[in-house]
Design a protein around this nucleic acid. Structure first.
Length: 1139
RNA sequence: AGUCUCGUAGCUCAGUUGGUUAGAGCACUACACUGAUAAUGUAGGGGUCGGCGGUUCAAGUCCGCCUGAGACUACCA
């Protein structure tokens, strides 16, 4: 059996092969079985919605999840990973509406709710296969066979149980509030939906300052002026608010559009927005085309003086049923913009509603045919038409002539399928009509930030709705307290973003007026005085039986205990009529519950608690040790998990959470369908493999930073890390196969291994330690970077490079076995360390090694068949030798300095040189270097190292201030001291070195410096070429003696022969015959170095010949075939053939 | 609009409690090395550490202000 040798690195093939291997051998399933009965590491999968295609950012989030689950599994935990699907909610419904070409209004009319919900159920799993594919291809291990699915009856039942608990605790209430409402989607939005990224957008709207005429005999043409960005709410105005302590002015001026003389009342600080200082001086004359409005201030007062004043209704379309149109006091009124007077439409603003209620001002309300109170705008975003209103109401309160022009108009063009942005909006229409009537003081376009529906992208309205709320504010303090025990990655998301959110918590609006979702299990009597909350199917069954007894219902569709025999969704559940304790009919509240409740309840619903799972059993899977999702879930899943667990169980739902940042395109722009800059995860994985993709995403920047996804970066990772590691393995495999090394020998005792082996093992164990810590701290980036630099700098570019000849030279000695064992250990350990991040490549590497060596065996004494079954490596502290690591670092540094000197002096490395000089500050330095002397010498091709003691007066030294020790001591004198040291003579430096201290004269003050306050470095060694780096100095002897030249030629010759061997595609084990044209210089070289040359090049027969003559050895005629340059000016002919 | 985070080489990122030549990789150029060869080494160019001011003997690092980006918060009309 031989180690597999590959032609080239092909991560895609590895990806596919390993994926098949895992599937065939049920590796994931077995990895779980292996840990059965061990401590649990509890992980929750945040359910994705499969009605959209997965993107590259999903690879990011899932890689993070996978990394820590695999790691914990290797650390001995049993890590159950149940997949889940989020199936309810608006995205699904909107998708179906689009497919069927219907709107919300058509549901129940053109299509039955039953059929509609069936369509939703089908739609929701539309891309499930694609998701499953991605999951497998990217190597995300999660149990796809038994996922939790939020639309299942069992799942819904747990939700009902939780709602029941909330109901019992009094956390559930019904309230009328002004809420964000999306007419386009036909539903109210929760605050976290409103806070989805990108919801607030800058839009340009027509805004106006309207004039509200004061009701007074005394002030006839006097108006309050108020600014609004939503002129469509003006017909619903019932009050004006002023700041009680703000100064107001009465200004005599003109209406800019009609030139009528008027008096306007506005906040004094806002004068400048409407009037220029100079206009006060102008004569009081104005005609329509004048640019400047003349004015005079005629009166000043405080806001509280205005409170209580009445005004005429601005747009008298509809009369309010109670008295309105008064000035009221509002603390929220500011003078930042507008007029200091705020238009109040209680039906369309939360603040408006609040302040109006406080002051006893009624909202502007219509009565519909069913007798229900409604705002002026219906749920589709248009003014109610009179035909759907109560006849009496229309007769009594509506000015039909005025209103008929506006009834049925949409308040935003976006809601009307027949209009575009270019058409005149209702805002403009109202503004123009007020302008004509002389009731507009200023009309202008204004850009402001306005919220939009996260699904339909259309503007939302603030709208009065009846809704069910969870009183999350009641447990706000507890949620804050519990949050402090959660380990957030990064910390700032927990304390900042999530913490601030909790500080400003409002009650959770649970209601959604849609069809496809979990029904709210509350039944009420018509007057709302009696209600029941159903908290299980069993309870529902019994209540229905009661209802049948009473005669309200005919049959019980929920009688069977088979969960597949009924459906808890609408419309079936709406048919259930229950009976109240007083014997009255109770109908279900038609709302659905927020889908975020679905996912937030997954810790309990995934195990069907408490119906299929006891509280003790629940504790085995709750709370989670670890969850991970995008930072955009802070207000979503992270919040709902936390809220429900606090509300119902007074516990955290998760202990550690990693929230990753956004994945942007390489220019830092958000990926979007519109820009077409999205990255297809399948294409990336197909081209570069999942490992390189995952590694790039994890190592490039911390997961919680935004990632600028650049495909070139993936390729760089492929070359740099995987390419290097693959090369290292290939090198190992090549020679291990030649020597039949299968790790059968006993481990060479550590003490008997050469310095370099002990060094890489020390580095390796240091690495294990730091990687273990990084994974344990949820710092995958740190782990990835450390592995990467070990592979590149330690293993490949130092260990293997220096050890190459140990693998191919000579007999199968202990040294060679030590080399194989050491390199094998490094490779195998690396496969384990990297397996959480690069599971495919790590598996390939591990199997390629272990299948041959059988080093790791299971309890049946068979080779372990997956790296993911192994235990995470534990560092052997006894192998970590910091002194050794330090001196190897010195060796690398010195070598690099010598190579640099060679380069500068044009001395190729093949030219051997006599010696290098290193000034040594102390004995310890000398002994450190001496231990790695051989390595340095062979690396830089020099014969000897000599040390210079500090006393040696050949050295030219330089003194430098040690700012760190001197700074605190001498403070402001630092500069003078540093200057003084800069100019130190060689004698003074020697004095300081000898005495250990020296007195300086700084501005006639004596200052004593210790040796430790000064850094002394060698600057130069006269007569030598010298290189400085920090406190290390190296000098190189550049003389080339005749014997050094001969040796160089021998090496050059070896090099040429090797090149020819390679050109001719000889095997590295082939023996050859070499014939060279006679040359006087070469004759001496060959005499001296014949054995060396033959040994290096596997030459069995080396001969020097004169052309046409059988010269030294052999009888054959010499016909030169190849000509080569040896050194400058020396060309010779050579023949090489296989023996 | 407010709050928070961030701004270091052409690109992606490091940079400890403030301490005096600000680093790495990629990319580019040149030259080497090579029994790992689609690998490797050495050298070079490229930085007013976003800007201004302050604290300090000393600021990429601490503090203010400004500016740009991002996230979050928010129906202030």
């Amino acid at each position: 059996m031989k180690y597999q040798e590959y032609k080239q690195l092909d991560l895609t093939t590895i990806n596919k092969d390993i994926q098949e291997y895992w599937q065939e051998n049920k590796v994931f399933e077995n990895s779980l079985k292996l840990r059965q009965g061990s401590k649990e590491f509890i992980f929750y999968e945040g359910p994705p919605s499969a009605n959209g295609q997965p993107g590259i950012h999903h690879v990011m989030a899932r890689a993070i999840k996978d990394i820590f689950c695999r790691y914990k599994s290797m650390k001995g935990y049993h890590v159950a990973r149940k997949a889940g699907w989020d199936t309810h909610g608006l995205p699904v419904e909107l998708g179906v509406e689009k497919n069927l070409g219907i709107t919300k209004e058509d549901i129940g009319k053109k299509i039955s709710v039953d059929d509609y919900n069936e369509a939703c159920k089908a739609e929701v799993m539309k891309y499930k296969d694609m998701w499953d594919d991605l999951t497998k291809q990217m190597g995300y291990w999660v149990d796809l066979d038994n996922p939790y699915i939020t639309f299942k009856n069992e799942y819904i039942e747990t939700l009902w149980f939780l709602i029941g608990e909330l109901h019992k605790k009094g956390y559930l209430y019904k309230g009328y509030t002004i809420q964000p409402f999306s007419p386009a989607a036909g539903t109210g939005l929760s605050s976290h939906e409103l806070n989805m990224p990108g919801c607030y957008k800058d839009v340009k709207d027509t805004t106006m300052v309207a004039q509200f005429k004061v009701k007074s005999e005394e002030h006839k043409d006097t108006y309050f002026i108020a600014w609004t960005t939503t002129p469509w709410t003006l017909p619903s105005n019932t009050a004006l608010a002023v700041g009680p302590n703000i100064d107001y002015v009465w200004v005599r001026t003109f209406n800019p559009y009609t030139a009528e003389p008027i008096t306007v009342i506005l906040g004094k600080p806002l004068m400048n927005s409407f009037f220029t200082q100079e206009a006060q001086e102008l004569p009081m004359e104005y005609s329509q085309n004048d640019k400047v409005l003349p004015y005079r201030i005629i009166k000043e007062c405080k806001g509280k003086d205005l409170v209580g004043m009445e005004y005429h209704q601005l747009l008298p379309w509809i009369k309010p049923q109670e008295s309105a149109f008064r000035v009221i006091s509002g603390d929220f009124v500011t003078t930042d913009d507008g007029t200091g007077i705020v238009h109040i439409a209680p039906t369309f603003g939360a603040d408006d509603d609040k302040v109006a209620k406080q002051s006893g001002i009624p909202p502007l309300i219509l009565i519909d045919k069913e007798g229900k109170r409604q705002p002026m705008v219906d749920r589709t975003g248009k003014f109610y038409t009179m035909d759907v209103l109560d006849n009496d109401f229309v007769e009594k309160y509506i000015n039909k002539e005025l209103y008929s022009k506006f009834e049925g108009k949409y308040v935003k063009n976006a809601f009307d399928s027949k209009l575009t942005e270019k058409d005149m909006s209702l805002d403009v229409e109202i503004a123009l009509s007020l302008k004509q009537e002389g009731k507009a003081f200023k009309i202008e376009k204004h850009t402001h930030n306005y919220p939009h529906c996260w699904r339909t992208d259309k503007p939302i309205l603030y709208y009065p709705l009846d809704s069910w709320f969870i009183r999350t504010t009641a447990i706000k303090d507890r949620m804050i307290e519990l949050n402090k025990t959660i380990n957030w990655k990064p910390e700032s998301t927990g304390t900042g973003r999530f913490g601030n959110w909790l500080e400003n918590l409002v009650d959770w609006n649970l209601s959604r007026s849609r069809y496809w979702g979990t029904p709210l299990p509350i039944w009420r009597t018509e007057d709302g005085k009696e209600e029941i909350c159903i908290s299980s199917v069993e309870m529902l069954r019994k209540e229905i039986d009661k209802s049948i007894e009473k005669g309200f219902m005919k049959e019980n569709k929920y009688a069977s205990k088979d969960y597949l025999s009924f459906d808890l969704h609408r419309p079936y559940i709406d048919d259930v009529v229950l009976v109240s304790p007083k014997g009255e009919k109770m109908m279900r509240e038609t709302d659905l519950i927020d889908v975020w409740f679905d996912s937030g309840a997954m810790p309990y619903a995934q195990v069907h608690y408490p119906f299929s799972c006891s509280e003790d059993e629940l504790k085995k899977t709750f709370p989670a040790d670890f969850i991970a999702e995008g930072v955009d879930q802070t207000r979503g899943w992270f919040f709902t998990l936390h809220a429900i667990s606090t509300l119902v169980f007074d516990s955290v739902a998760f202990k550690n959470v990693v929230s990753n940042g956004l994945v942007l395109d390489k220019n830092g722009n958000k990926m979007s369908k519109r820009l077409g800059n999205g990255v297809n995860p399948f294409e990336v994985i197909d081209k570069y493999g999942a490992d390189a993709t995952r590694w790039y995403m994890i190592s490039n920047s911390q997961p919680w930073e935004n990632l600028k996804f650049d495909i070139d970066g993936v390729d760089e990772v492929r070359r740099k890390l995987f390419g290097t590691l693959y090369n290292t393995y290939s090198f190992f495999a090549l020679y291990a196969n030649i020597d039949s090394f299968a790790y059968c020998e006993k481990d060479i005792p550590y003490a008997d291994r050469p310095e370099i082996d002990r060094w890489i093992l020390s580095e390796l164990n240091s690495l294990i330690k730091s990687i273990d810590e990084s994974y344990n701290d949820y710092e995958p980036t740190r782990a990835a970077r450390a592995i990467s630099s070990f592979v590149d700098e330690c293993l490949s570019n130092w260990y293997v490079r220096l050890c190459r000849r140990r693998f191919w030279k000579g007999e199968y000695t202990e040294d060679k076995i030590s080399a194989y064992q050491t390199l094998y250990t490094c490779l195998e350990t690396l496969s384990q360390l990297m397996s959480p991040i690069a599971p495919f490549f790590a598996e390939r590497l591990f199997l390629d090694l272990n299948n041959i060596s059988s080093r790791r065996k299971d309890e049946n004494n068979k080779p372990i068949s997956s790296v993911h079954y192994t235990d995470f490596p534990t560092p052997d502290e006894s192998l970590i030798d910091k002194g050794l690591e330090e001196r190897m670092f010195l060796a690398q540094k010195v070598s690099s300095m010598v190579l640099s000197l060679r380069k500068k002096n044009n001395l190729r490395v093949r030219q051997p040189l006599q010696k290098i000089l290193i000034p040594a500050p102390n004995q310890n330095f000398i002994s450190q270097i001496e231990k790695v002397e051989e390595l340095i010498l062979s690396e830089v091709n020099v014969k000897a190292i000599e040390f210079l003691s500090p006393e040696n007066n050949v050295l030219v030294k330089k003194a430098k201030a040690n700012f760190k020790t001197l700074g605190p001591k001498f403070g402001s004198k630092m500069k003078a001291i540093a200057n003084s040291l800069d100019g130190f003579s060689q004698e003074r430096i020697s004095d300081l070195e000898r005495e250990g201290k020296i007195i300086l004269d700084i501005n006639n003050e004596e200052i004593e410096l210790l040796l430790s306050d000064v850094e002394i470095v060698t600057q130069d060694i006269p007569g030598w070429v010298v290189q400085n780096d920090g406190n290390i100095t190296v000098a190189l002897d550049t003389t080339i003696t005749e014997s050094l030249l001969k040796e160089a030629i021998a090496r050059e010759l070896v090099n040429r022969i090797q090149n020819i061997r390679k050109d001719q595609l000889f095997e590295v084990t082939d023996f050859i015959r070499v014939e060279i044209e006679y040359n006087a210089l070469l004759e001496e070289v060959i005499q001296e170095y014949s054995e060396y040359i033959k040994g290096e090049t596997l030459t069995s027969d080396l001969s020097l010949r004169r052309q046409g003559v059988s010269a030294i050895i052999g009888q054959q005629h010499f016909e030169p075939i190849l000509k080569i340059d040896i050194i400058e000016g020396v060309e010779l002919a050579i023949n090489i053939s296989k023996v």
